[in-house]
Simulated scan of single mutants.
Amino acid sequence: MRIGIIGAGALGGTFAALLARAGHDVEVTARGSGLAAILADGIRLTGGFGDAHARVDAGEVLRVRPDLVLVCTKAQDAEAAISANAAVIDGVPVVIVQNGLDGVAIAERLLPRSSCMGVLSIIAANYTEPGVVRVTTRATSYLGRGDGPPDAECIRIAAILSDAVPVVAIGGFRGAQWSKLVVNMVNAVPTIVGRSVQEVIDDRRLRRVVTASMRETVRVGMARGVRFGAVQGLGDVRLRLFARLPLAIGQVLPWLMRVRMGDVPNLGSTQQSIRRGQPTEIDFLNGAVVREASVAGMDAPVNRALTALVHEVEQHGALPVKRVLELAPR
């Protein structure tokens, strides 16, 4: 199968290398030094899924109409990237592989003839050198759309992708997006203080802030009528219980996530963007919680403050730990 991958960063590079290794004909889009590196030496993948060196077609846009498209850009780049490739991909099944809540809806609006679905990936991968990706945590990804059970096409696409990397078709995808959003709350604090996710969670003071942002996210989701989907051991019952727990006890949730990560330093996708000198997708992570809270007539003060601090880091670099510690509820 010919598969187009828009955005060959951490996740896009991982999927591209593994799909090429599985025998698919892969074309990717990239820009700048990333594109130059891929054209010169392909994509090199190491870590959790083993080593792979994929020579793939690459350009700033897709040139050949594929049979399947994966959009793996950062959330803030999705609209421009899809629009730039629309002439080639409209009418082709499209899978949105990115954080946040809005990706599939954006694709459906821009590609009216395409069947659009989403993938939630818990794979942790570092992409700090052009054309080189290291998978630090191997994990299953989840594919679906809407609130109902997985349809036949979702099941078919999940099976195709599973030739290369574990992908499961799931029902209740919108609720699973919210569960993944809770997981993504581990991104902001490491970005602000310039530490790995593991180092942040190991620090009980910083772990308290991470826990507060996660609990606030769950409470906002509940106010929005969300039934949380099962992602990495998280589900509706467990997250609703977490939302009611005192902060001190709730810290077990990020701690369990940290144990699952292992000891290979995980920078988180947001911090990786900072290190590459690129804008982050914080407005689609913690910022999404703030917007959803507003719709529900609530405030989300922890996530609002974390969003502002990450934007400050985008301008000035990592901040003192005390700036984060001030956010922890008393």
Rank of each mutant, 00 (worst) to 15 (best):
S83T: 11
V193M: 09
V193E: 08
W178D: 07
L101E: 02
I106P: 02
R304H: 15
T73S: 06
R291N: 04
V92Q: 10
A54L: 03
G297L: 01
M214R: 03
V324A: 00
E216Q: 11
R2K: 04
M185N: 10
Q198D: 10
T136E: 03
I192E: 12
M185D: 08
P150I: 15
I123H: 04
V97E: 00
V132L: 09
P320M: 13
V132R: 10
R204S: 13
V92F: 13
Q251C: 04
G262K: 05
R134L: 11
S162R: 06
V165C: 14
V28F: 11
L309Y: 00
G91T: 10
R109L: 06
A16C: 06
P93V: 06
M117I: 03
I89N: 08
R227K: 05
P149E: 12
V289C: 07
S273H: 05
M1G: 06
R240D: 05
R205A: 13
R208F: 07
V167P: 07
D90V: 08
D67R: 12
F242K: 06
T14P: 04
A223C: 03
R63W: 15
G194T: 03
A158W: 04
I43D: 01
R238W: 14
T14G: 04
L234F: 15
I96H: 01
G277L: 15
D299P: 10
D51N: 06
L35Q: 02
A36V: 05
V165A: 13
S115V: 14
R145Y: 12
V218T: 07
R156H: 10
V56M: 05
V28C: 02
H316N: 10
I5V: 14
I282V: 15
A37R: 13
I82H: 01
M185G: 10
P254E: 01
P66W: 03
